[in-house]
Computed example of a mutant assay.
Amino acid sequence: MHRRLFLAASLSLALIPMNAQAANFVDYTPGVIEAALAEGKTVFVDYSATWCGTCKRQERVINALRAADPSYDAAMTFVKVDWDTYKADDVTVFRGIPRRSTLIVLRGEDELGRVVAGTSEAQIKALMDAGLSAPQG
């Protein structure tokens, strides 16, 4: 009995940092990306769906990278676009987003990089590093 309680408590404590980190995504509403770009910020956009396994894997990788290197949070605004709500909206159509599990980094008028359905740490880190190296305004 005590072992179950210990395991449950350990599991819940292990999940706290990941959930706290996930809260650092701004939920997309119309205009939020444009406002951040207008302020001179670099924006990391995650087009995802709650039911998408690939999206969940990407989020775990992103959260691990952000936890390991706080400079990502200092350099970029992280925005999560709900695919089910916005797949036919301008935020998706204008940028030619082909599907959920698409990640992009934006700076000013430029798209600095894109990952479509990729889940490798190296691929996602390279995209996030593109946001780090973008000149700040």
Rank of each mutant, 00 (worst) to 15 (best):
Y47V: 00
Y47T: 00
Y47Q: 05
T50L: 11
W51S: 09
W51N: 09
W51I: 05
W51T: 08
C52K: 03
C52E: 08
C52N: 10
G53N: 04
G53R: 00
T54W: 13
T54E: 11
T54N: 11
C55T: 04
C55N: 05
K56S: 11
R57L: 11
R57Y: 13
R57M: 15
Q58L: 06
Q58E: 15
E59W: 05
E59S: 11
R60S: 15
R60I: 08
R60E: 12
R60Q: 11
R60V: 15
V61T: 15
V61F: 11
V61I: 14
V61W: 06
I62S: 01
I62V: 13
A64E: 15
A64P: 08
L65I: 07
L65A: 11
R66K: 12
R66C: 07
R66H: 12
A67W: 04
A67E: 12
A67H: 10
A67V: 00
A67N: 09
A67G: 10
A67S: 14
A68R: 03
A68I: 06
A68W: 12
D69L: 02
D69H: 05
D69R: 00
D69K: 03
D69Q: 07
P70Q: 09
S71V: 12
Y72A: 01
Y72K: 01
Y72N: 00
D73T: 06
D73K: 02
D73L: 06
D73F: 04
D73A: 11
D73E: 12
A74M: 13
A74C: 09
A74D: 15
A74N: 11
A75M: 01
A75G: 03
M76K: 01
M76G: 02
M76W: 07
T77I: 13
T77W: 05
T77D: 10
T77N: 13
T77S: 12
F78E: 03
F78A: 01
V79P: 04
V79N: 01
K80R: 14
K80N: 08
K80E: 09
V81W: 04
V81C: 07
